[in-house]
């Protein structure tokens, strides 16, 4: 059974505030700057990986791979203007899900383009992530407001890597119902994110 998100699971927003300048230095070969990125954010990245794989030894390997990839891609990520935290979050999820399904035949699904130039077209920038991080406790509460069925379906997608037809099979629900629930969840989160991160006054 998927776990419910706990509120306020992370440190202050400023923990991540200088990741981009550290990456700029790392892209010029500064290993200390790269270690600074690791120290600030590795627990979060490992949290994502371990939530997916539920295997500490394998998760540590994936964590190492993701950071080695960041080192290799540091120049492109840095000059692309994207948030380092966002790049790591998406890459960690993707790498962990790849390990999770490496022993099974992957299902056919629409995948977003995973090449860096394509990702840079939609990955959030550092300012967008800073706004989210400042409101992290509120956003965690919003997740807790999702109806139970929507939350369960969403967790299977985010941390189980299931496509919506696979979620329907897993939950023994009609596909149309699961599709509707996932879209309703996405709409709810979009609306609440705008409210919490945007400038509206909102009471959550």
């Amino acid at each position: 059974m998927p776990r419910r998100a706990k509120p306020a699971g992370a440190g202050p927003a400023n923990t991540l505030s200088d990741l981009e300048s550290l990456l700029a230095s790392a892209s010029n070969g500064d290993r200390e700057a790269f270690a600074g990125i690791y120290d600030r954010i590795a627990p979060r990245v490992l949290g994502v990986i371990e939530r997916i794989l539920d295997d500490p030894a394998l998760s540590a390997q994936v964590l190492e791979d993701v950071f080695a990839e960041l080192w290799d891609e540091s120049r492109a990520v840095s000059t692309g203007g994207t948030s380092v935290a966002a790049w790591l979050a998406f890459r960690a999820r993707s790498a962990a899900l790849k390990r999770l399904t490496s022993h099974t035949s992957p299902s056919k699904r629409r995948e977003p383009a995973a090449d860096l130039p394509e990702m840079l077209a939609w990955l959030p920038d550092a300012e967008a992530i800073r706004r989210i991080e400042q409101r992290r406790p509120l956003l965690a509460r919003v997740l807790g407001q999702l109806p139970r069925e929507q939350f369960a379906a969403l967790q299977l997608v985010v941390f189980g890597g299931l496509a919506e037809n696979e979620v329907a099979d897993r939950l023994h629900q009609p596909l149309a119902k699961v599709r509707a629930e996932l879209r309703a969840a996405a709409r709810f989160l979009r609306h609440r994110r705008h409210a919490v991160v945007g400038s509206w006054a909102v009471n959550i």
């Binding site: 998100a5 627990p43 490992l46 540590a60 935290a85 939609w122 956003l139």
Partner: peptide
């Protein structure tokens, strides 16, 4: 897609942090 990526980031980041060895 850019705006959706912010929601997706927030979802992924709902995982509890784990300190690496």
């Amino acid at each position: 897609l850019r705006e959706a990526a912010e929601s997706v980031y927030w979802l992924i980041e709902s995982a509890e942090p784990v300190k690496p060895r």
